[in-house]
Amino acid sequence: MQMIRRFGEPPHDGIKYTLRPGAYAILQQNDRILLTFQDSPFLEFQLPGGGIDPNENVIHALRREILEETGYTIGAPRKIGAFRRFVHMPEYNIWAEKLCHIYYARPALKKGPPTEAGHTSHWVSKQQAISFVANVGDRHFLRRTFRSL
């Protein structure tokens, strides 16, 4: 069985964590990376993506979340890895074990502005993407991806 690397804080004793799988993507066009900025519950840049709904296919969730958070459709998603992190999600009032599936994809078509409240999309350089994203797992996969391209 393959171990999935953890980034961030270890789980705390006495806290019940809810498994929260999600799909996220590194979206590259030329030398620019598309990030989403979320203004609630914390101000932070993130890889676009989010939670996989019950009975939802991971690729469908990835496409849906990216469209909601950036306004873009994507082409040819390719899984590059996964990681776990243990966090409090105040917007859902839960402690979550986030299982983050990371993909690499190309933005395809801009359909309009983000439809998810509190999200804006931003094109940044590779170096800015690495320094802007809020969580260590996202940073790890950005660095690893740019080394391999």
Rank of each mutant, 00 (worst) to 15 (best):
R106P: 00
H140M: 00
M1K: 14
T120G: 05
P10Q: 04
P114W: 02
K79Q: 13
S121E: 15
G118C: 03
E116K: 09
P10G: 04
I26G: 01
Y103E: 09
G51W: 15
F7Q: 10
P77I: 12
F141M: 03
L35H: 06
P113K: 14
S131T: 13
A61E: 06
L62C: 08
A134P: 00
F86S: 08
E65N: 14
M89V: 06
H12V: 14
R64H: 13
N135Y: 09
I94W: 01
P21R: 10
I59Q: 06
I33A: 01
R32A: 08
K16P: 00
Y17W: 04
L142I: 05
V133L: 02
D53Y: 15
A23F: 09
Q128P: 01
H101P: 03
Y103L: 06
S40D: 11
E65Q: 13
R78M: 05
S121F: 11
L43H: 14
Y92D: 11
P41T: 09
T145G: 03
E116G: 00
G22R: 13
P114N: 05
G118F: 01
T73L: 06
E9V: 06
F42L: 09
L47W: 03
L43D: 14
I102V: 12
N57D: 13
F42A: 07
W123Y: 08
T36C: 10
F42D: 09
D31W: 00
H122F: 07
I130M: 10
C100V: 13
P48L: 07
N55S: 14
I26S: 01
G137M: 07
I66M: 09
P48G: 06
E56Y: 04
Y92K: 15
K126H: 02
H60A: 07
I94K: 05
L35Q: 07
P90A: 10
M89K: 05
H101S: 12
N57Q: 07
F37R: 07
S125Q: 04
P11M: 08
K110D: 04
D39E: 07
A129S: 05
G14H: 09
G118Q: 03
G22E: 07
H12C: 12
R139N: 04
R144L: 10
V136K: 10
G75A: 12
L43G: 11
P11L: 09
P113V: 12
A76Q: 04
A25P: 07
E9I: 06
C100G: 03
R143L: 05
E9Y: 09
P54Q: 08
Y24G: 02
S121P: 10
M1E: 12
E9A: 13
I33K: 02
V136M: 06
F83Y: 15
I80H: 04
S125A: 03
I33N: 01
V124L: 04
H12R: 15
T73S: 10
S148K: 15
L62Y: 08
V133Y: 01
L35Y: 05
F42N: 09
Q29H: 05
T18I: 12
N93I: 07
E65W: 09
Q46N: 13
F45V: 05
Q127N: 08
K98S: 14
P10S: 06
G75Q: 12
K98I: 13
Y72L: 01
N55A: 14
R143N: 02
I33W: 03
F132N: 11
G22S: 13
R63L: 02
Q29A: 07
A23C: 12
P41R: 11
V133F: 01
E97Q: 15
Q28E: 13
H119I: 12
L67Y: 11
N55V: 10
A61K: 04
P54A: 11
A82V: 11
F146V: 00
